[in-house]
């Protein structure tokens, strides 16, 4: 996407409030986030600055951004970080903690069915050998669900268990796409592991203790905690960069 430009020079704080008329809603201008189209004009619905972006079809997308964390809800296709709360042979329930890069203030409920755990051999999945309560997983939102929770899926290599504690209580190290090992007892436990560079996990745990500036995530990253690169289907342990 091309860089947007804000109305007015960068030093000025031109701010719009809900109800301010921004421009006419003609062929050249399209209402984006934070705006609403009404009676042929585009109005702002947030307090913030106006940004315009050139689209491919020569129209300008008019947006209003508050500059603060926006309240967002999970939408279909977004990658979320969730903590597993309940596991049974048919499905599991979890609490959605982050959507993409944004940490949520209020948690949402998610559900992962047995058929959506992996792409191959979908019916032969044993839930208890893939997830346990307390695991932190990366999943993709499939749909908004019907009654109680968002429907999730981990049927990709990059999705699955990111952090898990062993029965002895220690943080486990991933061995392959299906196993993790406890560093204290050396016992192996079965999980559906997400494909991530293992160095990143330890790096983040160590870095958060001191206040030095941390390195930025690589451009292809989609998860909030771990940098994910799309790899081939063959499960293999990635070399530490």
């Amino acid at each position: 996407m091309s860089q947007g430009s804000s109305a007015g020079s960068p030093g000025e704080a031109i701010c719009v409030v809900p109800g301010d008329c921004l421009c006419a809603a003609d062929d050249k201008h399209v209402a984006g986030k934070g705006t609403i189209e009404r009676s042929g004009y585009i109005y702002s619905c947030l307090v913030g600055r106006v940004y315009t972006q050139q689209q491919e079809d020569k129209t300008e997308l008019v947006e209003v951004r508050t500059g603060q964390e926006q309240n967002i809800v999970p939408t279909a296709g977004s990658v979320v970080t969730a903590k597993v709360t309940y596991v049974n042979p048919r499905f599991l329930r979890c609490e959605i903690l982050c959507i993409g890069e944004t940490v949520l203030k209020h948690k949402f409920r998610g559900m992962l069915k047995k058929e959506d755990v992996r792409a191959t051999e979908r019916d032969k999945v044993k839930m208890y050998e893939c997830f346990r309560p307390g695991d932190v997983i990366l999943a993709k939102v499939v749909s908004l669900g019907d009654a109680l929770s968002y429907v999730l899926s981990t049927a990709e290599n990059e999705l699955g268990v990111a952090l898990a504690h062993s029965e002895a209580g220690a943080l486990m190290v991933p061995l392959s796409w299906a196993e993790m090992r406890c560093p204290l007892t050396q016992a192996r436990e079965l999980r559906k592991v997400a494909k991530i560079p293992p160095e990143d996990v330890a790096f983040r745990l160590a870095r958060s203790a001191d206040r030095r500036p941390r390195r930025r995530l690589s451009p292809g990253a989609t998860g909030p905690l771990l940098s994910i690169q799309h790899t081939a289907d063959q499960p293999e342990v990635q070399a530490v960069a």
Binding site: P18, G19, G34, Y43, L46, E69
Partner: peptide, 11 residues
Amino acid sequence: LIDAGVALRDY
């Protein structure tokens, strides 16, 4: 509501 960043039609 304005402080919370909730989208409003008007004041």
